[in-house]
């Protein structure tokens, strides 16, 4: 899972404790994928178990500390750094696409009589564009608008990724709509209804 590698990669910058790691992650991703602190420490514990991170004492990390366990910091081990390098060197696999509710919904809808697929498409397109408007507003108003720090640039790129994903969905919906309209008109041409009026000549071109 990418959270594990992302946390490990952030530790390349130097030792950090859990809250710091979460904050560094969210600086870059704008809480798009919020991390709860329990998840952070569970992941760190697993990384430690696998020999990819190790605990740093306060004295070692340069923290003044106030006695027993003020902060428990972690740093990546050489094996951990190797895993990070391998993560960056390997493309994210696309062989198993995540389950796509919209594709499934339309795939079912087009086969059922009495379902208004065009209305499903239009409602979805409207909702998706509305989400894109929200992302775009964040892009042009928040810290992503004038990214000074590298983390702000990272956040603006994450927003771009959300926008491009949504755009792909809208394009696919446009495509579905056009295909369905063409299929319907071809069906009407091949099998004209006996009592239907003659087709009108109002084909709108522009």
């Amino acid at each position: 899972m990418s959270i594990r590698q992302a946390m490990l990669a952030l530790l390349e910058q130097g030792p950090m404790y859990g809250y710091q790691l979460r904050s560094e992650f969210e600086q870059r991703t704008g809480e798009t994928w919020p991390l709860n602190i329990g998840q952070v420490y569970t992941t760190l514990a697993r990384l430690e178990r696998d020999g990819l991170v190790e605990v740093v004492t306060d004295a070692e990390s340069g923290d003044s500390g106030d006695g027993d366990r003020a902060h428990v910091s972690y740093r990546a081990t050489p094996a951990g750094l190797e895993e990070v390098a391998a993560w960056f060197a390997t493309p994210v696999p696309r062989t198993q696409p995540p389950r796509d509710e919209l594709a499934i919904k339309l795939a079912i809808a087009v086969t059922l009589p009495g379902v208004d697929v065009a209305a499903i498409i239009q409602r979805q397109r409207s909702a998706t564009i509305s989400a894109m408007q929200d992302y775009t507003r964040l892009k042009r108003t928040g810290r992503a608008a004038n990214p000074d720090a590298p983390a702000d640039l990272a956040w603006s790129l994450v927003l771009d990724s959300l926008v491009f994903d949504a755009e792909a969905e809208v394009r696919w919906l446009d495509h579905c709509e056009a295909r369905l309209r063409r299929a319907a008109s071809e069906k009407a041409r091949v099998r004209p209804s006996v009592d239907a009026p003659a087709p009108s000549s109002q084909e709108v071109v522009r």
Binding site: R125, I129, M132, Y135, V163, R171
Partner: peptide, 18 residues
Amino acid sequence: HEARHAAWADRVVFLRDG
């Protein structure tokens, strides 16, 4: 015709067949 551009607008109007 690009949703990504329309997302810069306050309001989006869809036209079909005029």
